[in-house]
């Protein structure tokens, strides 16, 4: 096993170990913490396909996270309030089934990523960052001013959604679902990176001129990556809303986009497990330092600065060594 593989396994095992310990020690709060880390890691794994593999610095991924969250909120809201959702002549009763909710979340965030990506990818560099940020803000203000689903106050879902054969109200079982989905997303991300598409995407990141010279349709390749990225982050949004049983415009805020990006950079862009390490570290710091000071993010800022200045490969880069 290579050093990178050992580091990856250690990261995965430590996220798994915490809730198992918590289960034995009967500390359900720790399980929730680990679940939160797994979900945020999933959002980061999504962003990393655009950012790490594609070099697309999106500061608007909260849009997809929030759309996933609202997909869960809206579908479950209609089920819990027994008010059917009218889509033209069609009547939809809503649902409390996770798989269906996930599908809606993935498809709607994917559709949004397709549109936002198609418009944003006409630009590059700092303009791309700004335009993705602008789209995110548009959705944020839209959610605030849309009264049907709680507007600024957000939307509460009283009972966690169900999954066939599992009791999702049991923290450890819900954690298992999130951990499994994180594993699946990591597997997809790894497969993608090793595929012909992944090579083309990497080449487009490193040299657009080279990619064009071998006949690659760079905008279309990047759009596909951006869409897949948005879908995974959208799925994470649905799980996040389910964890909190609450969705609000905060999920769509640019601070959320920044947080997801922080996981990726802390852990190491271009590293498969970077977002996982980053999200775990973030949740840990939030838990440990958050108790000491409400300004704990100052320490986070210092850490981020140190990583950017001294460890460009992030935490995983530091541990695993080697280039990229």
């Amino acid at each position: 096993m290579s050093r990178a593989a050992v580091v990856n396994a250690a990261i995965a095992l430590s996220i798994l170990a915490v809730p198992l310990y918590a289960l034995a020690a009967d500390e359900p709060f720790l399980i929730t913490l680990a679940t939160r880390a797994a979900i945020l890691a999933l959002a980061g794994v999504g962003l990393n396909i655009a950012l790490g593999q594609g070099g697309l610095v999106s500061l608007g991924h909260a849009a997809f996270f929030g759309i996933g969250g609202y997909a869960m909120g809206i579908v479950a809201f209609h089920a819990q309030s027994f008010t059917p959702l009218m889509i033209g002549p069609l009547e939809f009763q809503g649902s409390k089934s996770m798989p269906l909710i996930w599908l809606v979340a993935i498809l709607s965030s994917g559709a949004a990523a397709l549109v936002i990506g198609a418009l944003s990818l006409r630009t590059s560099g700092v303009y791309f960052i700004m335009i993705t940020l602008a789209f995110g803000q548009m959705l944020f203000y839209f959610a605030i001013s849309w009264p049907a689903y709680g507007g600024e106050d957000g939307l509460s879902i009283y009972v966690r959604n169900g999954f066939p054969g599992l009791n999702t109200l049991d923290p450890i079982q819900f954690f298992g679902i999130c951990f499994a989905l994180l594993g699946a997303a990591l597997w997809i991300s790894a497969r993608l990176a090793a595929s012909p598409f992944g090579l083309a995407l990497a080449a487009a990141r490193q040299s657009v001129a080279r990619a064009q010279a071998v006949g690659l349709n760079v905008p279309r390749i990047q759009l596909a990556a951006f869409t897949i990225s948005g879908m995974i982050t959208g799925l994470a949004g649905a799980l996040f809303a389910d964890l909190n049983r609450f969705v609000s415009p905060t999920m769509l805020s640019w601070q959320m986009s920044g947080e997801i990006m922080v996981f990726v950079i802390l852990g190491g862009t271009a590293r498969l497990f970077g977002p996982v390490a980053g999200a775990a570290l973030y949740v840990l710091l939030e838990h440990l330092l958050g108790g000491i000071s409400e300004f704990w993010q100052i320490y986070l800022g210092g850490l981020l600065l140190a990583v950017v200045l001294f460890a460009r490969g992030g935490l995983v880069g530091l541990l695993a060594g080697g280039a990229r």
């Binding site: 090793a194 992944g198 071998v214 690659l216």
Partner: peptide, 16 residues
């Protein structure tokens, strides 16, 4: 990468 560009298969996502 060159051979891939020439083959036109740059959207294959499942193969290695």
């Amino acid at each position: 990468l060159g051979a891939l560009g020439a083959s036109g298969g740059s959207f294959r996502m499942a193969a290695r």
